[in-house]
Each structure stands twice: as structure tokens, then as C-alpha cells.
Simulated assay, not measured.
Amino acid sequence: MQDEPILKVVNLKKQYGPGCQWCSNGHESIFEKNRCLRCGTVYACNDLSFELYPGEILGVVGESGSGKSTMMKCLYFDEEVTSGAAYIGTYDDGETNVFQQSSQQKRHIRNTILGMVYQNPVLGLKMDFSSIGNIAEKMIAAGDRHVERMENRSKELLTHVHIPLARIKDEPKKFSGGMQQRVQIAKALSNQPPILLLDEVTTGLDLSVQASVLDLIKTIQQKFGISMIVVSHDLAVIRMLADRTIVMLDGKIIEQGLTDQILENPQHAYTQQLVYSLI
């Protein structure tokens, strides 16, 4: 792992609602979890700060509603942040807050620097396009117009994620959930992004399929040296994949550190509860 982070997030905040004089000042007494009881504003992400290093897998764990998926949507520009900054080492030497870039620049970052794998493949794939067409679409969005190169790259990636070549012209709607996730991973990798975002990618899959998808993620990370953020509510997934882990609760980071450290010696009461429920 190198010293300079490839991604640095500083005080990321995402709120739904205008806020009021009480919750804007952080009065704990008027909150129910991360929702203001006076005005109804929900603080989905509340001042999140963390780093991701080259070649690292960073795990993000927390219960449903903790803000994990909202954070990922903000990082991939699916959602506008309320405030905060993110700096990517391979974009403008890590000097520019990417949240403040134009929509055109954000599209460029999405298509060339970031890859995203959603929990629901419908969000990441065009279900009526062929699998090879899905990958080509992402390459075209990044400016590629070379048909043969796109076809070869698509075949290479689909083979890598164990989609039989006989089925690369099939639409993802004809595939099982595990195969759809594999096509999504191949699409996310199409432009060789240095950062891959994976949001609950094994939720809802059979255990044997989960294991093969996790094994694929680990293999890809080792082969390509991609930095990854892996979100899960399942500590077993985090244990298998992540070098370091962030624990989220009610829109805040309550604990972070080396995964082994967090699993063997959790400090926060909520993390202790998570860990002991796994044992």
C-alpha cells in the first residue's frame, strides 16, 4: 500500500430535507437515529471522512439505513452531496474537489476512473442489451469508437468473470442473479478504472453463488490491483475481502481500522454487538 490515498473523502454530508435551527446545530436530543423529530430532515450521511489507498479493499459495514448505500451513490454522482469534498489521486493530481465539478466532468470520472456494481443489477445494466453490448456501451461513453477493440475487450472480460462465450450475445434478463452480477462486474471493469465501488453485491444470492462472486472480486483485485470500496451488512463478506473497515451507524462513521483489529477487538458497543452476533 502506498502512502498517498487514491481517494480522500472529507466531511461528506447528504441530508434529505432543509434542516431546522435545532438539527442544523446538532442538538442530539431532537434526533431519532438520524432523523430530526422537529422538521423531519434525515441526515443520511453526516460528516463522513476516510481514505482509500492504491490496491486496497476498504470495507463499509452497518445495518440497513446506516447510510452506506447513500455514501456510494454520492461517490458515483448518482446523488448530489449536501456538502463535503472528495479528491481522486488520478484526477487533477488529487487537487480538485470532484463533487464541485461540472456534470460533463463527473460523467468523465464515472466512465474512466470509477466502476460501480449495484446491489440490484437493473441499476447497472441495460437488461434488453446483449451482455457484450452492455460492456461496449460503457466503452463508448468513455470515447472508444473502435468496434473490434470493444468486441475483444468485452469477450476478454466476460471470459474473466466466467460467462460462457456462447452466451455473450444473450441479454442479462435471461441470466441468473449471480450471472447478472458477473456481467455488471465485467461492465464496471471495461475502461480499467483504478477504483471500483461494490454495493451489497452478494445480497439475495444463494450461498454458493455468493462464494463464487466474492472469490471473483478477490481474484480481480489481486490481478489488476484495483482499489475497492465494498459495502455490506454482512461481516463475513467484510472479513473475507477487506483490508480495512469502516463501521457506520445512523449516518456516521463510529469506528474504523484494520479489519482484523475491528473483528477481534471492537471498541464501539454497536460494533461489539455486530461482531458477537457473527460468532
Rank of each mutant, 00 (worst) to 15 (best):
M116Q: 06
K33A: 15
Q15K: 15
K174F: 12
I135V: 14
L75E: 09
K8N: 11
S103D: 13
L48W: 10
M228Q: 11
L165Q: 11
L12T: 04
M240Y: 15
S64H: 05
I220Y: 02
E255N: 02
F50D: 01
G59C: 09
Q181T: 01
A44Y: 11
M228V: 10
K138R: 08
G177W: 03
L75M: 12
D250S: 14
E255T: 12
V98Q: 06
F175P: 09
N265L: 10
D215P: 03
R244W: 11
Q184R: 04
V61M: 13
L216E: 01
Q2Y: 09
L216A: 04
Q15L: 07
G59F: 05
V60K: 13
V10I: 12
Y87W: 10
E148W: 04
Q119N: 06
L241M: 15
K73L: 08
S103F: 00
E79F: 12
F224G: 01
E63Y: 04
D78S: 05
Q181H: 02
N46Y: 12
I132S: 03
S130C: 09
Q261M: 05
D234G: 09
L75Y: 03
V60Q: 10
R239V: 04
F224V: 02
I163S: 05
T90L: 00
V201W: 04
K73N: 11
V81C: 10
E171P: 14
G115P: 08
I30P: 12
N111Y: 11
I57F: 08
G133P: 03
N134H: 06
L216P: 03
I6F: 08
Q105T: 12
V237S: 08
Y76M: 14
L216S: 05
K218L: 15
T245L: 12
P194Y: 00
H108L: 11
G94I: 14
E28M: 03
V230R: 08
E264C: 02
H108P: 00
A86T: 14
I140L: 12
V9Y: 08
M116I: 10
S190F: 11
A166W: 09
L123Q: 10
K138E: 07
F175S: 01
P266V: 00
Y53F: 15
M71L: 14
V183A: 04
S29F: 02
I132R: 04
K138Q: 07
L263D: 06
C45I: 14
Q2H: 10
Q210W: 05
P54R: 15
M179S: 00
E56M: 13
V230H: 07
L48G: 01
L196E: 06
D128L: 15
Y270Q: 03
L125W: 02
L198Y: 03
Q21H: 15
G257Y: 03
H162T: 05
I262E: 03
I132W: 07
P54D: 05
V42I: 15
L125S: 00
S49Q: 13
G143K: 10
D215Q: 06
H27F: 08
L196C: 08
V117F: 12
V122A: 06
T219Y: 13
G89D: 14
K73I: 03
A141I: 05
H27V: 14
A142D: 01
Q15S: 07
D170V: 11
K223N: 11
I88D: 07
D47K: 00
H162Y: 07
L48H: 10
S130G: 13
I113L: 13
T96V: 14
R35M: 14
N34F: 08
L75H: 02
Y53M: 12
D47C: 02
Q104K: 13
W22C: 01
